[in-house]
Write a protein that binds this DNA or RNA. Structure first.
Lengths: 342, 342
DNA sequence: TACATTTGTTCAAACGTTTGAAATATAACT
DNA sequence: AGTTATATTTCAAACGTTTGAACAAATGTA
């Protein structure tokens, strides 16, 4: 039942040639005869040979492993990003090993250590929200491990980073609402101390300025990010004497809550009130009216992060890699909730 | 910039002792003096030593890697299961490497090969829907790799399998609706050639039989699993002369479609029509009324699968592992859409 | 004192592969 | 046949760690 797995040496003995011949034949070495290559392939197949990556990796100093660290695997944004990463890295012959930080810095640090022990060639990470110190990543770099950060990044750290342009996104969304004919846009935001929200708000303000409109403090509600909070915030806005005729909610869940409030007030969406969400959560297509939102390109972000790692891996010797920060421009997903008012 | 990473030998030289002493000290060998252990630890820390798992693994014949194969990483059910897997395996000191089959058998087979090369100690998989042949898993087993299947399993294959009891789930859901006072339950199903749907339908029928009710063929609609299909199916049912007063939808998306149809007909939920979904997709708490559904325990499934692998790994020598099929009993999540009619 | 035990450490081989240099076989010219 | 070039294969060392056996030193026992 438990017979030892066949190795390159077994194949060599079986064929009466040397192990190195087998190795070279399998790796398609130019100086090996086609004949031996064929025969080796056949015998390997026949004996059920599987290459041992640990031996290969040890010898070559390359594991073929890339580590990915996210706060939680099951959060839609991250799992989609991981898919994007796997798609390109798998294609390129790398295996990805994943770890969760549970949004705790110390777990993140520990995970980096696990990865370094595993000899990963690169680490792609979206950091825990309280991670301030980046010495664990610096340690990785010192060990020759490539590092790429996405979405939740450390601007000060000199590595490739992929993020989305929240300002631009909010700009586009706000413009879209005005273009559709809505005249007064209320904004419901998550905690403004978090950078993304802050930037989105800035985008909104920028459009007001650009189009020569007055910024009205009272049209902004800052709240936490639960469904209920979205509902309350919307209620507060809609119950004003001059309620807005559109709500730009800086997260889809907030938008959902807002929709509930609007519906309770008997207002038609999108005819009387336009709604715009943010993030493209998967439920946004399921609600009614379907929710216009901003695609954060989680999958593409994963793609980009993976490509960035590949670039670094390939630029290996040519010492000339200059860390770059890529800012992806998000795309509006116009659905029913914000469509053509007039 | 690119200095070689310190090895056990470097530590040994630095301290003037032998590499084996260092190795033994680090692995807390009983015959090593506390003094040396302390010192080794200190120097290791000081030189920034990181163990090389490839060397360790090669020598020990263990990689500390577990492979996970799912159709798609980003599907909520799977990513949640992966979280469940990572939680217990990470804790146990294993790293998990993941791969997607994209629901294609050949990719699944290829992925198994990749994992075998990577010397994973175990594989946890949810198979592609068209996978019929299981020789790739048999090959893995022959290589001494443990195999555990979850959710989408191969009953014929003699390995640990974790699945949920669809029959039981449907039974509970149906009973719940009757208990709430609904009298006539329409059922909207996905393709009945797929086993889970078939089993759920059976559960529904069983309750009718148990409670002495007549089974009415006309209350069953079989359709594909899109939102639109759910809506149409529900419309069809609600527009009958004697429409049902509750709809048991065998997937949450179908339920969402059904809710739209019901709402359009001006019927109140849950007062006039009760709705029950299946799977606990994350949007179910966001809709209004919040959707009662069946929790498929994706995370726990991952936990169980991981524990099963651990058991096998630990039972290694004791040759006495008997493959078992665990059937998890799903839990109803009673929310607003099915609550207390009278 | 001689011998056995215990404690701490070193030796040397092994895990399975890769790789440049060296060796051999084969073919190609004078 | 002798030489040179070329194609193919083998040699041997290396990658970093672990591990049982062997050794040495310290301690205990008779």
């Amino acid at each position: 039942m438990k017979k030892r797995k066949p190795t390159i040496v077994d194949i060599a003995n079986y064929m009466g040639i040397s192990p190195s011949a087998v190795s070279k034949a399998m790796s398609n070495h130019p100086r090996m005869s086609e004949k031996t290559k064929k025969e080796v392939a056949k015998v390997a197949e026949q004996l059920g040979y599987q290459r041992n990556n640990m031996a290969t990796g040890l010898r070559k100093g390359k594991s073929g492993l890339i580590g990915v660290i996210v706060p939680y695997i099951h959060v839609n944004f991250f799992s989609t990003a991981i898919k994007g990463i796997e798609d390109v890295l798998g294609q390129a012959g790398y295996s990805i090993v994943i770890g969760q930080s549970k949004d705790e810095t110390n777990k993140e640090v520990a995970q980096v250590d696990v990865f370094l022990n595993a000899q990963v060639e690169g680490i792609i990470a979206s950091i825990a929200s309280n991670t301030k110190d980046s010495s664990h990543f610096i340690k990785a770099l010192a060990n020759g491990v490539k590092v790429v950060l996405f979405d939740r990044t450390i601007p000060e750290l000199d590595v490739d980073q992929i993020m989305i342009d929240d300002f631009d996104a909010a700009t586009k969304a706000t413009k879209h609402l005005f273009d559709q004919g809505y005249g007064k846009i209320g904004l419901i935001s998550g905690p403004l101390e978090l950078l993304p929200y802050k930037r989105r708000l800035d985008g909104y303000k920028a459009v007001l300025a650009q189009t020569g409109r007055e910024f009205d403090e009272n049209l902004i509600v800052e709240t936490d990010i639960s469904l209920e909070s979205g509902k309350k915030a919307a209620a507060q806005l809609m119950d004003r004497k001059n309620p807005p005729d559109a709500l730009f909610c800086l997260s889809d869940v907030l938008a959902l809550g807002a929709m509930n409030a609007v519906r309770e007030r008997g207002k038609k969406m999108p005819e009387e009130v336009g709604i715009m969400g943010f993030s493209n959560e998967n439920f946004t297509t399921y609600v009614s009216p379907s929710l216009s939102t901003v695609d954060q390109f989680s999958e593409q972000m994963g793609n980009h992060a993976a490509k960035a790692i590949l670039n670094q891996l390939r630029a290996e010797e040519s010492h000339n890699h200059v860390p770059s920060k890529q800012v992806l421009s998000p795309k509006l997903l116009i659905r029913e909730s914000s469509k053509i008012r007039k």
